[in-house]
Write a protein that binds this DNA or RNA. Structure first.
Lengths: 193, 193
DNA sequence: TTCATTTCTTCACTTAAGTGAACGAGTTAC
DNA sequence: GTAACTCGTTCACTTAAGTGAAGAAATGAA
């Protein structure tokens, strides 16, 4: 697990042994069971998550229905956006699979940033990358139909289709589970006959 | 115009007269006619835009159809995301109305940032704000139907509905102009009885 | 002004997603 | 082991968006 983390960081900044040890001393690693809810609607989100292994999910509860808006898998970082304005969350975060997460809170970030300015640099770069990815994903979603979104997902994140329940995948694509079933049948139909 | 800019900046950092003059000496202000295309698909985008007056629009050309993904109006900032990885743009930016824009390029930003570190601070805060807004908008889009999106737009940006052509608005909502007409008729029907 | 173009709406028809119900295949709990 | 639940699929029906055509209104250009 340590290696996964340090390999990831090394893409952005290089760390000394001291810095690595300082990071490890913070007790960042957490094992989380499938189904665990990390953040509930109404709570003030204090923590950021980095996925080392497994999958976590963001969803809203609207008219009694879950609406999934994002999945985070290996090497994805999730900083709840309400952290900034400190308003209570209007969504949930939960664990799709048994996962190993790196969990940090604001205090830890202040501590590590003050000791090692490198981390701030890395965070800035990461947040710019995130913004770019976000914009590209948003544009792709807006400019395509549910079927195109599904085919796109099949290309870009084929693992998700295997590891995530269909009804969560459906709402991520902006449709109902029944429609996803139909849509899949339609695609198979096209390719077979 | 100058005042609009400095009032905006003062929300983030306070500037000395020297700094204000340095900014003004850069010749940032540009008047742009309605219909002008600021960036074409295939070009490498070098410029960032800040809208002082008017409205600009981002759109993709897919199968010969324009798909509008964003409108930027007074006090909105648009930094084309491909700037970061320097790949050619896959979208267009054009002027919806006669507008007054603040246009900057990478060279200017380097110059002003090196002279006045305050600007870098402001840019970091702005980019965090932008990421948060983006995430909220994306979630709202994903979790709602075209009709809900239209009603939401009516609440949040009623001016857009007046100043933007319906067919651009329609593609922004993810539907065809005919469907937007129908949708509007349906809403009026409901409210009338 | 006049002609042409763009823009918006309406209509009839097609296609795909929403809804509610039902069923079988797993899973989980007791 | 069995009952309860979850999950995915299918079906029939409803609703809303896509499509192509047509026409009225507004806009722009010669």
């Amino acid at each position: 697990m340590k290696n996964i983390l340090f390999d990831f960081i090394s893409k952005y900044v290089s760390l000394t042994e001291d810095e690595k040890n300082a990071l490890l001393s913070l007790d960042l690693f957490h094992s989380v069971k499938k189904g665990t809810v990390l953040l509930k609607e109404g709570q003030k989100s204090q923590e950021s998550y980095f996925v080392l292994k497994g999958c976590i999910r963001v969803y809203y509860m609207i008219d009694g229905e879950e609406k999934t808006t994002a999945f985070y898998t290996e090497l994805d970082a999730l900083t709840p956006h309400r952290v900034l304005d400190n308003a209570p969350s209007d969504y949930f975060i939960s664990c799709v699979e048994d996962s190993i997460l790196l969990v940090s809170n604001a205090d830890m970030e202040v501590e590590i940033n003050s000791k090692f300015p490198k981390f701030e640099t890395m965070c800035r770069i990461l947040s710019e990358e995130l913004l770019t990815k976000q914009q590209i994903d948003f544009d792709a979603f807006k400019t395509s139909s549910p079927e195109q979104r599904y085919l796109n997902l099949l290309q870009k994140r084929p693992d998700l289709i295997q590891r995530v329940p269909q009804h969560q995948l459906a709402s991520y694509l902006g449709i109902k589970p029944q429609s996803l079933s139909r849509l899949r049948a339609r695609i198979i139909e096209k390719n077979t006959g």
